[in-house]
Simulated assay, not measured.
Amino acid sequence: MKKILLFGITFILFMLPFVYPGHSVSGETNSESEIDIGITPSEYLFDIENMKPGDWAPREIVVQNNGLKEFKYVTTVQNEGGSKKLFNELLLEIEDGNGEIYNGKLTDFKGISPRTLAPSSDEKLTFTIRFPEELGNDFQGLSSNFLIIFTAEGNNSGTDEETSGGVVGGDDSFSGGGSKLPVTATNMFTYLLIGAALVVAGGIVLLLYRIRRLDNKRV
Score class of each variant (00 low, 15 high):
residue 120 S to N: 12
residue 120 S to Q: 09
residue 120 S to Y: 07
residue 120 S to W: 10
residue 122 D to E: 10
residue 122 D to T: 06
residue 123 E to I: 09
residue 124 K to S: 13
residue 125 L to C: 04
residue 125 L to W: 03
residue 125 L to V: 13
residue 127 F to R: 00
residue 127 F to K: 01
residue 127 F to H: 07
residue 127 F to G: 06
residue 128 T to F: 03
residue 128 T to V: 09
residue 128 T to E: 01
residue 129 I to E: 09
residue 129 I to C: 11
residue 130 R to G: 14
residue 130 R to N: 13
residue 131 F to N: 03
residue 131 F to R: 14
residue 132 P to G: 12
residue 132 P to S: 14
residue 132 P to Q: 15
residue 133 E to N: 13
residue 133 E to W: 13
residue 134 E to I: 14
residue 134 E to K: 08
residue 134 E to Y: 03
residue 135 L to K: 03
residue 135 L to P: 03
residue 135 L to Y: 00
residue 135 L to Q: 07
residue 136 G to V: 02
residue 136 G to N: 11
residue 136 G to W: 01
residue 136 G to I: 02
residue 137 N to P: 11
residue 137 N to F: 05
residue 137 N to K: 14
residue 138 D to F: 10
residue 139 F to V: 13
residue 139 F to A: 12
residue 139 F to P: 12
residue 140 Q to E: 15
residue 141 G to R: 03
residue 142 L to K: 13
residue 143 S to G: 12
residue 143 S to Y: 01
residue 143 S to F: 03
residue 144 S to H: 03
residue 145 N to H: 13
residue 145 N to M: 13
residue 146 F to A: 11
residue 146 F to C: 10
residue 146 F to Y: 12
residue 147 L to G: 14
residue 149 I to P: 11
residue 149 I to D: 15
residue 150 F to G: 06
residue 151 T to I: 14
residue 152 A to F: 13
residue 152 A to G: 14
residue 155 N to M: 14
residue 156 N to S: 15
residue 156 N to T: 14
residue 157 S to W: 09
residue 157 S to P: 07
residue 157 S to Q: 11
residue 158 G to L: 04
residue 158 G to V: 02
residue 159 T to N: 10
residue 159 T to D: 12
residue 160 D to R: 10
residue 160 D to T: 00
residue 161 E to F: 00
residue 161 E to L: 08
residue 161 E to I: 05
residue 162 E to T: 02
residue 162 E to N: 08
residue 162 E to F: 08
residue 162 E to W: 10
residue 163 T to M: 11
residue 164 S to K: 07
residue 164 S to E: 04
residue 165 G to P: 08
residue 165 G to A: 08
residue 166 G to M: 11
residue 167 V to R: 10
residue 167 V to L: 09
residue 168 V to R: 01
residue 168 V to Y: 00
residue 168 V to A: 02
residue 168 V to D: 04
residue 169 G to W: 09
residue 169 G to Q: 06
residue 170 G to Q: 08
residue 170 G to D: 08
residue 170 G to M: 04
residue 171 D to S: 06
residue 171 D to W: 05
residue 171 D to Q: 06
residue 172 D to M: 00
residue 173 S to A: 04
residue 173 S to C: 08
residue 173 S to P: 05
residue 174 F to I: 08
residue 175 S to E: 15
residue 175 S to T: 15
residue 175 S to C: 07
residue 175 S to Q: 08
residue 175 S to W: 00
residue 175 S to H: 08
residue 176 G to H: 06
residue 176 G to N: 04
residue 176 G to W: 01
residue 176 G to Y: 05
residue 177 G to V: 02
residue 177 G to S: 10
residue 177 G to C: 01
residue 178 G to F: 00
residue 178 G to C: 02
residue 179 S to Q: 13
residue 180 K to E: 00
residue 180 K to M: 05
residue 180 K to L: 02
residue 180 K to A: 01
residue 181 L to R: 07
residue 181 L to K: 11
residue 182 P to T: 03
residue 182 P to L: 08
residue 183 V to M: 05
residue 183 V to N: 05
residue 184 T to E: 01
residue 184 T to F: 01
residue 184 T to D: 03
residue 185 A to E: 15
residue 185 A to W: 11
residue 187 N to W: 01
residue 187 N to E: 00
residue 187 N to G: 11
residue 187 N to F: 06
residue 188 M to N: 12
residue 188 M to R: 15
residue 189 F to I: 05
residue 190 T to H: 05
residue 190 T to L: 07
residue 192 L to K: 05
residue 192 L to C: 13
residue 192 L to H: 05
residue 192 L to P: 06
residue 192 L to M: 10
residue 194 I to A: 10
residue 194 I to Q: 07
residue 194 I to K: 03
residue 195 G to D: 08
